[in-house]
């Protein structure tokens, strides 16, 4: 009995030791806020072309913290994010390094990258207002959501979601804090229900007559139209590009950056170059219905059919700068409670 136990303990420890291995060095390692099913087809294509293996860790939260803790021994080469705030946060914490190549310079217009080349946008997405077809066609401004006539008609996901925070930040940049706080309080008063669920769930609620108006990113509309079950939801709404007669619709980005201590710099740069190449940009456009940042790459036919729109030309850095203030205002308005 005694020997058996010692023996099995030994085997156990040996097995545990053997299963601890650190990421290999000839690959490229990605920390991703983006969902794996969106980026994996791209990575597979990249591996096929270059032979470089891509390793991914996906998490919705906490990647910046992990990267900071890991410091100079971090295995991460590339970071993928779903909005501008995360990129700026990483930059402010000095976790990024400049990445430069002719491909990058050629592919990305100046307003979609950092001045010091520490981050690049990959796609843009509009924060749209969805409205029930039963309301007829309306030209919306974000400011209209505070209008009393929409009392009990508006649905949205949590105000603290990065997409909404960025929208609020753009409102602050445009109108100032006091106006935005009042706006938030009035929008909250107009809500049909407590903020909850995802952007798609709000469209579903419109389809079910629970409310008439919701906030949602542009690509969700395309994705819902492609989904058998969700097509009926999308069919019940118009997608509206707000503020077309004034400053334009609020636009956010998904982006990428190179980690400060990237151990596989060359591979990382190769992956970045690949992600801004025309074929990869086209894949973004087709698989997730986003707007490619590379000039000359068209959005998918479906997205193009929604028409041209005017985008707010407020700089992304400005939006990111107002993020903390936006959170404070959301707390003050008790938007989610």
């Amino acid at each position: 009995m005694l020997h058996k136990i010692w023996f099995s303990s030994f085997v156990f420890v040996a097995l545990l030791g053997a299963s601890i291995h650190v990421a290999a060095n000839d690959d490229v390692n990605v920390y991703s806020y983006r969902q794996p099913f969106l980026v994996e087809p791209l990575f597979n294509e990249f591996t096929k072309e270059t032979g470089i293996k891509v390793n991914v860790v996906f998490a919705k939260q906490g990647m910046a913290e992990r990267l900071a803790r890991e410091g100079e021994y971090s295995p991460a080469d590339i970071l993928l994010t779903t909005d501008i705030s995360r990129l700026i946060e990483l930059k402010e914490k000095d976790l990024l390094q400049a990445a430069e190549s002719t491909e990058l310079t050629e592919a990305i217009p100046a307003q979609y990258k950092a001045l010091d080349n520490t981050w690049y946008a990959l796609t843009t997405r509009v924060r749209n207002i969805y409205s029930a077809k039963r309301l007829g066609e309306i030209d919306f401004n974000y400011e209209d959501l505070a209008d009393e006539k929409y009392q009990g008609k508006i649905c949205t996901r949590s105000g603290k979601h990065p997409y909404n925070v960025a929208l609020v930040a753009s409102m602050i940049a445009e109108h100032g804090e006091a106006y935005t706080l009042t706006w938030l309080q009035k929008v909250k008063a107009n809500l049909a229900r407590k903020p909850q669920g995802s952007d798609r769930a709000q469209v579903q609620a419109i389809h079910q007559n629970l409310c008439d108006i919701s906030l949602g990113n542009s690509y969700y509309f395309g994705n819902m139209l492609k989904d058998e079950k969700q097509k009926v939801w999308a069919d019940a709404v118009y997608i509206n590009f707000p503020n077309q007669s004034n400053r334009g619709a609020h636009v956010n980005i998904s982006g990428m950056a190179m980690a400060k201590y990237a151990p596989n710099k060359a591979n990382a740069l190769a992956l970045m170059n690949f992600l801004v190449s025309a074929p990869a940009q086209k894949m973004y456009a087709e698989t997730n219905m986003e707007y490619p940042v590379r000039p000359g790459v068209e959005p998918s036919k479906l997205v193009a059919s929604w028409g041209q729109f005017k985008a707010d030309n407020l700089s992304l850095e400005t939006i990111a700068k107002q993020r903390k203030t936006a959170l404070i205002l959301l707390d003050k308005a008790q938007f989610d409670l």
């Binding site: 969902q35 991914v56 906490g62």
Partner: peptide, 23 residues
């Protein structure tokens, strides 16, 4: 697990969570 996992490491719970978060 979600926050601590190494590269390319999925468990049943993280997989379910990801699918849930994408509905």
């Amino acid at each position: 697990v979600l926050l601590l996992r190494p590269f390319n490491f999925e468990t049943l719970s993280t997989q379910i969570y990801q699918l849930i978060s994408d509905e």
